[in-house]
């Protein structure tokens, strides 16, 4: 008998602090699997965000930097410019990447900074207890939108992948989800490609991972994944939004 599935070695033995059923754990594992398979652990440096994944620096076995809220793409830019041969990734949530850090995100993308960005979109601020995020759905009830997100007063959710895909800069933008086995496997493939692109010097690759937050959505882990399928994915359609190299090959 051979081991067909085990914990990847670029995760440390530290138990994850995430809530039961939180898909951060799945996404951490997918990132670590990609790092293992590409054999880049020794030269990878990760950048942790502020938010639920703030302690990602304890979980990834590679060198890690903890960034200020939203600043991970700028920190990653510094790291990559200092160590161009190393592999640099950021791991950020929706508040971090699409609200307070939107400028850093857009400009790293438009510079085609040769980094890998893992963007976890679960439509809520988790760490602070469930406030409205830039990606909260219209009508979604959160602690700071107790009557539901009212688009007339607070505007609409931001579709980050679609928006970034309008830029000439970025190499690769794909939205995936982790709500079932099929989608998790597709997410794995996308994340690996985002790292492979960096190894090949292709540039900025962002994977938006549609994710769940059972605790702050007030649902069981199972129900939360159903909500991803029924509500999140229709608003945030999965797919490749930009793949510059592929387009070049076609032409």
């Amino acid at each position: 008998m051979a081991v067909v599935f085990q914990k990847p070695k670029s995760l440390t033995d530290a138990p994850l602090h995430y809530c039961p059923g939180c898909t951060h754990g799945i996404i951490h594992r997918l990132v670590a699997e990609a790092i293992d398979e590409l054999q880049i652990e020794g030269k990878t440096i990760g950048v942790a965000p502020v938010g639920c994944a703030v302690m990602a620096y304890d979980y990834f076995a590679c060198d890690m930097v903890e960034a200020a809220h939203g600043r991970a793409p700028a920190v990653a830019t510094g790291l990559k410019r200092a160590l161009p041969e190393n592999i640099i990734f950021t791991y950020q949530g929706d508040g971090d990447l699409a609200s307070i850090g939107m400028a850093e995100t857009v400009h790293a993308a438009t510079r085609n900074e040769n980094i890998t960005v893992i963007f976890v979109n679960n439509a809520i601020y988790g760490m602070t207890g469930g406030q409205m995020a830039p990606t909260s759905l219209p009508g979604q009830v959160t602690q700071t939108s107790p009557y539901g997100r009212d688009t007339a007063t607070v505007g609409f959710p931001i579709r980050v992948s679609e928006m970034l895909a309008t830029l000439d800069g970025p190499e690769f933008i794909q939205r995936v989800a982790v709500n079932n086995v099929k989608n998790v496997n597709a997410a794995k493939k996308a994340i690996k490609k985002a790292f492979q692109n960096q190894i090949e010097g292709k540039g900025f690759s962002l994977i938006e991972v549609v994710s769940s937050c059972p605790t702050n959505w007030g649902m069981t882990p199972k129900k939360a994944l159903e909500w991803v399928e029924e509500k999140m994915i229709p608003y945030y359609p999965l797919g490749v939004y930009k793949d510059r190299s592929a387009n070049k090959e076609e032409k």
Partner: peptide, 18 residues
């Protein structure tokens, strides 16, 4: 040339870390 002073100092933070 960074997109803001905030980005610039955080790029500094990244390089300083190395």
């Amino acid at each position: 040339q960074a997109e803001s002073e905030i980005a610039a100092i955080n790029m500094v933070y990244g390089v300083a870390g190395t």
